[in-house]
Protein backbone atom coordinates (compact mmCIF):
# COMPACT_ATOMS: atom_id res chain seq x y z
CA UNK A 1 0.00 0.00 0.00
CA UNK A 2 1.22 3.47 -0.84
CA UNK A 3 1.59 5.94 2.01
CA UNK A 4 -1.45 8.09 2.67
CA UNK A 5 -0.75 11.19 0.65
CA UNK A 6 -1.42 14.41 2.50
CA UNK A 7 -2.85 16.96 0.12
CA UNK A 8 -1.87 20.57 0.85
CA UNK A 9 -5.22 22.24 1.23
CA UNK A 10 -5.81 25.85 2.20
CA UNK A 11 -6.73 26.02 5.89
CA UNK A 12 -9.97 27.62 6.87
CA UNK A 13 -9.76 30.42 9.46
CA UNK A 14 -8.94 28.64 12.67
CA UNK A 15 -9.56 28.95 16.41
CA UNK A 16 -7.35 31.97 17.05
CA UNK A 17 -9.20 34.27 14.63
CA UNK A 18 -12.53 33.79 16.36
CA UNK A 19 -13.54 35.35 19.64
CA UNK A 20 -14.74 32.70 22.07
CA UNK A 21 -18.49 33.05 22.35
CA UNK A 22 -21.16 30.98 24.05
CA UNK A 23 -22.18 28.77 21.08
CA UNK A 24 -18.51 27.98 20.36
CA UNK A 25 -17.68 27.31 24.01
CA UNK A 26 -20.71 25.10 24.54
CA UNK A 27 -19.97 23.12 21.37
CA UNK A 28 -16.38 22.45 22.49
CA UNK A 29 -17.56 21.48 25.97
CA UNK A 30 -19.98 18.92 24.47
CA UNK A 31 -17.06 17.07 22.91
CA UNK A 32 -14.84 17.32 26.00
CA UNK A 33 -17.54 16.13 28.43
CA UNK A 34 -18.70 13.29 26.15
CA UNK A 35 -15.23 11.87 25.80
CA UNK A 36 -14.23 12.49 29.43
CA UNK A 37 -17.19 10.43 30.69
CA UNK A 38 -15.25 7.29 29.71
CA UNK A 39 -13.21 7.74 32.93
CA UNK A 40 -16.17 7.38 35.30
CA UNK A 41 -17.68 4.62 33.13
CA UNK A 42 -14.50 2.58 33.57
CA UNK A 43 -14.55 3.25 37.33
CA UNK A 44 -18.23 2.22 37.69
CA UNK A 45 -17.76 -1.00 35.65
CA UNK A 46 -14.64 -1.81 37.68
CA UNK A 47 -16.62 -1.26 40.90
CA UNK A 48 -19.41 -3.53 39.59
CA UNK A 49 -16.90 -6.23 38.60
CA UNK A 50 -15.30 -5.98 42.05
CA UNK A 51 -18.71 -6.36 43.72
CA UNK A 52 -19.36 -9.48 41.61
CA UNK A 53 -15.95 -10.96 42.44
CA UNK A 54 -15.18 -10.87 46.16
CA UNK A 55 -15.48 -8.95 49.43
CA UNK A 56 -11.82 -7.85 49.49
CA UNK A 57 -11.81 -6.76 45.83
CA UNK A 58 -15.02 -4.80 46.43
CA UNK A 59 -13.47 -3.09 49.44
CA UNK A 60 -10.55 -1.92 47.28
CA UNK A 61 -12.78 -0.54 44.50
CA UNK A 62 -15.23 0.96 46.98
CA UNK A 63 -12.38 2.68 48.86
CA UNK A 64 -11.13 4.28 45.62
CA UNK A 65 -14.58 5.42 44.46
CA UNK A 66 -15.61 6.83 47.84
CA UNK A 67 -12.26 8.49 48.65
CA UNK A 68 -11.87 12.28 48.27
CA UNK A 69 -10.34 11.60 44.86
CA UNK A 70 -13.30 9.41 43.88
CA UNK A 71 -15.71 12.06 45.14
CA UNK A 72 -14.07 14.72 42.95
CA UNK A 73 -14.08 12.45 39.86
CA UNK A 74 -17.70 11.41 40.42
CA UNK A 75 -18.97 14.94 41.09
CA UNK A 76 -17.20 16.29 37.99
CA UNK A 77 -18.62 13.33 36.03
CA UNK A 78 -22.15 14.17 37.16
CA UNK A 79 -21.55 17.74 35.97
CA UNK A 80 -20.15 16.44 32.67
CA UNK A 81 -23.05 14.00 32.32
CA UNK A 82 -25.75 16.63 32.85
CA UNK A 83 -23.95 19.05 30.59
CA UNK A 84 -23.63 16.46 27.79
CA UNK A 85 -27.26 15.49 28.39
CA UNK A 86 -28.56 19.04 27.93
CA UNK A 87 -26.19 19.77 25.03
CA UNK A 88 -27.33 16.52 23.41
CA UNK A 89 -30.98 17.58 23.64
CA UNK A 90 -29.97 20.92 22.12
CA UNK A 91 -28.21 19.04 19.32
CA UNK A 92 -31.39 17.09 18.57
CA UNK A 93 -33.22 20.43 18.37
CA UNK A 94 -30.56 21.76 15.98
CA UNK A 95 -30.87 18.58 13.88
CA UNK A 96 -34.58 19.31 13.56
CA UNK A 97 -33.59 22.68 12.07
CA UNK A 98 -34.74 24.74 15.06
CA UNK A 99 -32.96 27.18 17.36
CA UNK A 100 -30.23 27.99 14.89
CA UNK A 101 -30.57 31.78 14.85
CA UNK A 102 -27.84 33.51 16.87
CA UNK A 103 -30.02 34.87 19.65
CA UNK A 104 -31.68 31.51 20.37
CA UNK A 105 -28.39 29.64 20.05
CA UNK A 106 -26.78 31.89 22.68
CA UNK A 107 -29.76 31.42 25.00
CA UNK A 108 -29.66 27.66 24.58
CA UNK A 109 -25.93 27.72 25.30
CA UNK A 110 -26.50 29.52 28.58
CA UNK A 111 -29.33 27.09 29.36
CA UNK A 112 -26.88 24.17 28.98
CA UNK A 113 -24.21 25.85 31.13
CA UNK A 114 -26.51 26.99 33.93
CA UNK A 115 -28.83 23.97 33.71
CA UNK A 116 -25.98 21.50 34.13
CA UNK A 117 -24.72 23.25 37.26
CA UNK A 118 -28.25 23.38 38.75
CA UNK A 119 -28.88 19.69 37.99
CA UNK A 120 -25.48 18.75 39.45
CA UNK A 121 -26.18 20.64 42.69
CA UNK A 122 -29.61 18.95 42.90
CA UNK A 123 -28.06 15.51 42.25
CA UNK A 124 -25.42 16.01 44.94
CA UNK A 125 -28.04 17.24 47.45
CA UNK A 126 -30.37 14.29 46.70
CA UNK A 127 -27.63 11.72 47.22
CA UNK A 128 -26.46 13.40 50.43
CA UNK A 129 -29.97 12.79 51.78
CA UNK A 130 -30.59 9.29 50.39
Amino acid sequence: MAETKQVERPLSPHLQVYRMRVPMLTSILTRITGNALIVSTILIVWWLLAAATSESYFNTANAVLTSWFGDIVMTLSVLGLWYHYLAGLRHLLYDAGRGLDIETAVKLGWACLIGSVVLTVLTVIIFQIV
Binding site: I44, F58, T66, I126
Partner: peptide, 14 residues
Protein backbone atom coordinates in the same frame (compact mmCIF):
# COMPACT_ATOMS: atom_id res chain seq x y z
CA UNK B 1 -29.55 3.68 40.68
CA UNK B 2 -25.76 4.08 40.72
CA UNK B 3 -25.94 7.18 42.92
CA UNK B 4 -28.03 5.30 45.47
CA UNK B 5 -25.87 2.17 45.44
CA UNK B 6 -22.47 3.88 45.46
CA UNK B 7 -21.01 4.10 48.95
CA UNK B 8 -23.11 1.23 50.33
CA UNK B 9 -21.80 -2.12 51.49
CA UNK B 10 -21.27 -5.06 49.12
CA UNK B 11 -24.46 -6.84 50.24
CA UNK B 12 -26.61 -3.82 49.42
CA UNK B 13 -24.87 -3.32 46.06
CA UNK B 14 -25.39 -6.98 45.12
Amino acid sequence: IVGSALGQGREAVL
